[in-house]
């Protein structure tokens, strides 16, 4: 099939960008969206035009590198799918497809479709971990964890940090990203010690990075490629209130 693409081209963070039209031929249904862009880039190279830059790496939906808006939807809008796992069987011959980077103040565009998501790392550095110094751990089975708890913690821990949640939110809120980590740690017994400080520090870091507020529209979880539940946000809100009232000393 043949597609018409409107792709955001921007040289660097200092210049402004614009949509550029391209036609791409020979697209087949078993190709991924990124492989379709590879074909476009190959044809651009052969014409001595600079290829379109986009972040990507594992191409199996786990590294979290890739991600951009396809026809206005983060990762293209197929449920639980990163754009590297978006297959062209979801498109038809002659379709016009608009491709643009995540749009969020906290994710400035670096070039074309690549954005800077290091704000996420700074949020994790503020407290998104359990402080367990190497060498001090006790035997893994001394702490039995009920299977449903382990499973729920895993569901939250599956976040790949791609930023689709921020891009899909009209307020560019990072609540789903932060709440996924807060939920994982709050559910596990190992996470109890720093439970209050963690949520407070991470929420403060999120505000510092100028992510927007959450207005409960759940656009984030609708596009999340790992299906992180909106309930994690509910949990984070309750964790935050709990921390505010009782503090880290569990204050009753």
């Amino acid at each position: 099939m043949r597609l018409h693409l409107k792709i955001w081209r921007q040289k660097n963070s200092q210049t402004s960008g614009k949509f550029v039209d391209y036609d791409v031929d020979g697209v087949v249904s078993d190709m991924s969206f990124l492989e379709m862009l590879d074909i476009l880039n190959d044809s651009l190279s052969k014409k001595n035009e600079e290829p379109v830059t986009f972040d990507h790496d594992c191409r199996e939906g786990i590294c979290g590198s890739c991600g951009f808006m396809v026809n206005g939807l983060a990762h293209g809008g197929v449920p639980k799918t990163t754009v590297c796992q978006l297959y062209m069987r979801n498109f038809k011959d002659g379709d016009t497809v608009t491709v643009e980077p995540w749009r969020a103040q906290s994710f400035p565009v670096i070039k074309d479709l690549a954005v800077n998501r290091t704000a996420f790392d700074r949020i994790i550095a503020s407290g998104g971990y359990i402080s367990s110094t190497v060498g001090s751990a006790t035997d893994g089975n001394t702490l039995p964890i009920p299977r449903p708890i382990a499973e729920s913690a895993f569901d939250a821990a599956a976040c790949i940090g791609c930023g689709a949640c921020v891009a899909a939110c009209k307020n560019a809120s990072a609540m789903l990203f932060v709440s996924a980590k807060v939920t994982q740690m709050a559910l596990l017994p190992q996470g109890q010690v720093e439970r209050a400080e963690r949520v407070e520090a991470m929420v403060a870091a999120m505000d510092e990075e100028k992510f927007g507020s959450c207005t409960n529209e759940a656009e984030c979880s609708a596009v999340c490629p790992k299906g992180i539940s909106f309930k994690t946000i509910t949990r984070m809100n309750s964790e935050f209130i709990r921390a505010n009232i009782f503090g880290s000393g569990n204050g009753e």
Partner: peptide, 22 residues
Amino acid sequence: VNIIDQCVSQGVPFAREYGGQL
């Protein structure tokens, strides 16, 4: 054997049996 202990302590959500064991 130390690696598993270290990872559990960091909150790595390993698969568990119904009794809670790894």
